[in-house]
Amino acid sequence: MNVVEILRTATGLTPDLPTLERALRTRMRKLGMAAHADYARLLDGPELDELAELVVVPESWMFRDPAAFHAATSLVQRRVARDPAAVVRILSAPCAGGEEPYSMAMALQDAGVAAARYSIDAIDLSAASIRRARAARYTANAFRGEELEFRDRYFKADGKGYVLREPVRGSVHFRRGNLLDLGADAARYDIIFCRNLLIYFDDAAIGRAAAVLSTLLADGGMLLAGPAEAPALCRHGFARLPLPGAFALYKTSQPPAELAVRPMASRRVAGVSLKKTLPDGQSAAGLLGIARRHAESGRWREAVRTCHGLLALEPTEAGAWFILGQASRHQGDVRAAERHWRRCLYLAPRHHEVLGALAQLAEHDGEAGRAAVYRQRAARLRSGA
């Protein structure tokens, strides 16, 4: 077989010709080789890994396609609410430099999901990517968009970069691996992120990958793909979930129960359209209004009870988390208030009141810089920026 055939068979990768030619020139020059046939004979060993490193240039950033993380977090919350002893298994493949699985871990922590209730595995073909992921050090390029408050909480500035703090850093398990090599004896996952990999695959390799993903995805699980990949996967036993912007899929034979049994009506959470409804004609807005009236009247016990009832049905209702934070602050439990308000902010980054509340808590803790960040965000929202 020639170099292209060897690379495609072993990894599924079919890079464009200019990229492959540059990679070949680089490796052959380094090895002092002139003949492609001689180089091809080296590709049954470690040299294949070296070539693969050069034909895929992983680029990602924190919370890329935020709707995917909303969808995954919501599913985890529903699973845990249904079974408090459940451990939801999550896979990121490929994981690039760790941006995706670390984002998932931050999302779950902000949503208040206990670390014991989930497990995140991450694999990548590139050994260099795995080393970067384990180092957990990122440049400013890994943080895009205007909503970067999470960086101030989860990362420590280090020269020109940012280093991820514990415990998020230790919550992801990295290893080098090839998705196509994962067989029937591999673990099953409730949620799989497989985004921006299949764009390097031809039709045959996409079929191979889809079969592996179907095996890895537990019955009732969710697969999160890239926007260009979802249509191809739908030709291989997957179907779309009604979650705009998430590019979420399920095995046609086994849709996630939490999404299949509850028809969903459109609404927006954190600027992203998600779909939820409550049973028996009761609206989330109605329950939230009741909770607000209890809070305004100082009936904190009733407010908390109403919020918990709402969140049991709608874990992503940001307003309920805000009221729980108010109740905790009233009771003098500052740390609980902070946890609730962070969940609110994760779900609704444009929530003015929670930004002010978190600024006050930061000042209470003597963290003037963090308080200023919250106030600046609130000011930008007021100005319409």
Rank of each mutant, 00 (worst) to 15 (best):
G237T: 12
H340Q: 13
A295D: 11
M264E: 14
T19I: 09
G356F: 10
A248Q: 05
G286W: 06
V76F: 08
A265S: 13
Y250G: 07
D16V: 11
G98C: 00
A312L: 12
L31R: 14
A72T: 02
A205Y: 01
R335T: 11
Q331Y: 12
D152T: 04
V3R: 02
A187H: 06
A303P: 09
R132P: 05
D158V: 12
G356A: 13
L361P: 12
A357M: 08
V163E: 15
A37H: 00
A127Q: 13
A86S: 11
L213H: 05
R329P: 00
I206A: 09
R41C: 00
D110Q: 14
S214F: 02
R165Y: 07
A105S: 15
D152G: 10
A357E: 14
A327S: 14
H236N: 07
A205P: 01
P279R: 15
H36F: 02
L287S: 11
V272M: 13
R165N: 15
L164P: 07
G170E: 07
A23L: 07
A228F: 02
F322R: 15
R41F: 00
A228R: 12
R380K: 13
G366M: 08
A128I: 07
E99L: 05
M28T: 01
I206L: 09
S328V: 01
V113W: 03
A295P: 00
P244G: 09
A337N: 08
V55P: 05
A23P: 07
